[in-house]
Write a protein that binds this DNA or RNA. Sequence first.
DNA 1: ATCCAGGGAACCC
DNA 2: GGGTTCCATGGA
Length: 287
Amino acid sequence: MWNKSDVISGLYLSVIDSHPVAIRQINSASFSIETDAEYFHRIPVEQFFERYFSLDIANQTLFDDEFHSRFPHLTKRLLQLEGLRVLRQDPYEALVTFMCAQGIGMAMIRRQVAMLCRCFGKELHGNLSGTDTPLFSFPDPQELADADPEMLRSCCNNNSIRANNIREASRLAAIGALDLHALSEPSVPLSEIQRELTSLRGIGYKIADCIALFGMGRFDAFPIDTHVEQFLSAWFSIGSSRSGLSQKRYLHLQREAVELLGASLAGYAGHHLFHCWRTTERNMKAF
DNA sequence: ATCCAGGGAACCC
DNA sequence: GGGTTCCATGGA
């Protein structure tokens, strides 16, 4: 268990992008993932850390020498994100949480996920290092597939369309028609992941790529949201300043970004740029 | 009241 | 097919 001051001070991880379910926040100052490791993954905690925090990826390798020489001002700023990790989250968790993330702010996204866990997850009984705040697991597909519609809607910011989309995706996952773990095989082409996930209602390219990047360990997947679109234009002159992402424009920008950042870790690097843009350019808080 | 927040889908030439 | 318009919701 780490507390936030350790993290921010750069003790080990200077910044963690705490996407809603990535880290269970215990209170305003501390968080834990210990119980997640044992509860969900049934593997030793050390192995879980290594894998969950993608400690096999060295941040110094995200941007090559050519990038550094072309964008020295960015290089300097990216150094401040030395500890930023992209997490290997559970694919179903990533699917649901990013389905909650359309046209809505981060605070609202987190609130939705917290409510989903509290309403439909199982209470966890781990050793929480002295705190007695209850933690809840993320619900599994069957639990959301069977969810009471009204309660599910209340967990989804009262958006019934979103709630129905999540229930249907969960139903497909529960009966095996949607096999997220098979899709997570490294040999599966990104285009197939996109095709499979976008066939679900409520999931377009952006959310599909987020699920691949954060939930399937596909660090080559490069999701483009409003912030990414902004920094692609402002920093790299990729795409014009006009907004509006048609499907074709999305794929076009994505190809150019991957060409700039390199195919293998484009999404991982992109997330560093995403964080850099939000914190240094938009003055948004990391947590 | 108005606009924004880590988009998606319906709709129209 | 490809681009524009509408959609939904709560908070600042």
